[in-house]
Amino acid sequence: MATKWKAALCWLALAAAGFGLINVLIGVGVIDTFIENMLVTIGINIILATGLNLIIGFSGQFSLGHAGFMALGAYATAIITSAMPTVGGFYLSVAVGIAIAMVVAVIIGIPTLRLRGDYLAIATMGAAEIIRVILNNLKITNGAAGMFNIPALAGWPTVYVMVCLTTLMIVNFARSRAGRAIQAIREDEIAAEASGIDPTKWKLAAFVMGAATAAIGGSLDAVYIQTIAPGNFGIMNSIAILIIVVLGGVGSMTGTFMAAAVLGVLDTVLQSFGALRMVIYALALIAIMVFKPSGLLGRYEVSIRAWLDRKGVNNAASNSNRAE
């Protein structure tokens, strides 16, 4: 069997095992509501941060407006499920949220993606703030008070499946024609353009893809927390997602998983510290950055396929040794 299929099966088995494990742990009471909450938050953060890592780590575009796209998904879900409080309504709202986020990403991206580095960051931050201000003033979104009593249409299993699905899509996107094009632009835009790659088109592709996954994260957040308000999608929320990406290692999806988990656990553990919580969090953040400037994992990725390849080579080598 080809290594690629073996690797895919391994990942599938791993995902299924994880699902089973959580199920069992909830059954025997090791995972209580408190920990389940933490796991769901970690899952949603993974969805948000892998999308942002695609934009920042792979296409090299510094976006600081991720919470804006998250808000679009969250509000699409809140509004649609208030009229259609069914699972079907939820999935429809996810699709609508994705579509809106993609359209808005195109509208924001076309003028701003020509900007470089920090200028782009500040422009995308501004765009996200504009989204927030609009949500804050519309009737249909219930203004600054936000929307509550959103039906609980997704529990941890939905979030788990969505984490797997979005990660699969983002990682596969990053390792394809599209991924090579966006990484070429990140490395050297002038050379990429001279090689026939349209920088605007591919930067936009990564940006739109990231926005779409952010909308999924927002939709899940809405039905899980059941309350949303414009204040949940401000600059500080975009920064929180950015922190996960940088802490894990810009360009490492494995790192994003790890950072989301570490921060999720840290946050839960620090709950009992009261007012000191954020002080410790801030110090931890500074310390990690000063002592591990490239993030927890740098650019490292876990790859079952590479591991199988290595094993294959070793086996072949030991086989040939035996033959001698």
Partner: peptide
């Protein structure tokens, strides 16, 4: 962090900001 990626220094600055805000609180 003078020779680290700029985004690392940015996150550190955010950490310092959190520290000052929450430390004062």
């Amino acid at each position: 962090l003078r020779h680290s990626p700029r985004i690392t220094a940015l996150i550190t600055a955010i950490g310092v900001s959190y520290f000052l805000e929450n430390g004062m609180s």
